[in-house]
Amino acid sequence: MTGETSGEERMVIRADDADAEMQARARALSSPLRMRVLRLCAFESRTNKELAGLLSTNPGTMLHHVRTLVQTGYLAAEPERAGAQGAREVPYRATGLSWRTSIPEGAPVLVETFLQQIEGVPSEQLNITWLGLKLSPEHKAELEDRLYALVSEFKERGPDAGGDTYSLFTALHPDENPPAPR
């Protein structure tokens, strides 16, 4: 044997690498704290120290989370800058990759992240709607497609200069509301 791998073996190696990368990305998004870091870095670059302060987390713990997000491509380091007393700071910015990443079994993480995000937000600033619908499979698919298209349209526009930041959370799920007895 010459040490070379066949095309089939190379494909397996690449598939394994892709699978490992997908698993690492899924693990990276399995933390509500890391999801919140991505939200905080979506429109503004922030340093590890700034993130730790905003999320009331130990800077060492935050560094672990930031490194995980950088290694998986969800955060990117920007050019270093001088901080207080001339200390070297590295700001990070979200890459947008999380928008295009499916999170298997991610619903509990997203719900927990949402609950953490709204903790302390005055009720008059929360615009929440809860609606029961009875839809055919075709109309359910239409609703999902139209919601996705609308959200995608606003995402693709990019941030408005001088705009305020908002978070949008939607959930469509079966309603375990049994029909009344006849």
Rank of each mutant, 00 (worst) to 15 (best):
M1R: 08
G3N: 05
E4Q: 07
S6I: 03
E8Y: 14
E9T: 05
E9I: 02
R10K: 11
M11I: 04
I13F: 08
R14I: 05
R14A: 06
A15M: 08
D16M: 07
D17N: 10
D19E: 12
A20E: 14
A20V: 08
A24Y: 08
A24I: 02
R25A: 09
R25I: 07
R25Q: 15
A26E: 09
A26H: 04
L29A: 05
S30N: 11
S31T: 02
P32E: 08
P32R: 09
P32H: 11
L33N: 04
R34F: 04
R34K: 14
L38R: 01
L38E: 04
L40F: 06
C41K: 00
C41A: 12
A42H: 12
F43N: 06
F43R: 01
E44D: 12
S45R: 09
S45T: 06
S45V: 04
R46E: 00
R46I: 00
T47E: 00
N48I: 05
A52K: 02
G53E: 13
P59K: 02
L63Q: 10
H64F: 05
V66T: 00
V66D: 00
R67E: 01
T68E: 13
Q71T: 07
G73V: 04
L75I: 03
A77K: 08
A77P: 06
E78L: 03
P79D: 12
R81Y: 01
G83K: 03
G83Q: 03
A84R: 13
A84Y: 08
G86H: 05
R88P: 00
P91R: 05
Y92C: 03
T95L: 05
R100C: 08
T101S: 15
T101L: 06
E105W: 04
E105P: 00
E105V: 01
G106S: 11
G106D: 07
V109K: 01
F114Q: 13
F114P: 01
L115V: 02
Q116V: 01
Q116D: 10
Q117S: 04
G120K: 07
S123Y: 09
S123T: 11
S123R: 09
S123N: 14
N127R: 08
N127F: 14
T129L: 09
T129K: 08
L131W: 04
G132C: 04
G132K: 09
G132F: 06
L135M: 10
L135E: 13
L135N: 09
P137T: 03
E138D: 15
H139G: 03
H139L: 11
K140W: 03
L143V: 12
L143F: 14
L143I: 11
E144S: 05
R146H: 15
L147E: 14
L150R: 14
V151I: 14
F154R: 15
E156T: 10
G158R: 10
A161D: 13
D164M: 14
D164L: 13
T165W: 01
Y166V: 12
Y166Q: 12
T170V: 13
A171K: 00
A171P: 00
A171F: 04
L172N: 09
P174A: 14
D175T: 04
D175W: 03
D175Q: 03
E176S: 09
E176P: 00
N177V: 03
N177H: 06
P178H: 06
P179R: 03
P179F: 01
P179W: 01
A180W: 10
A180N: 12
A180G: 06
P181S: 07
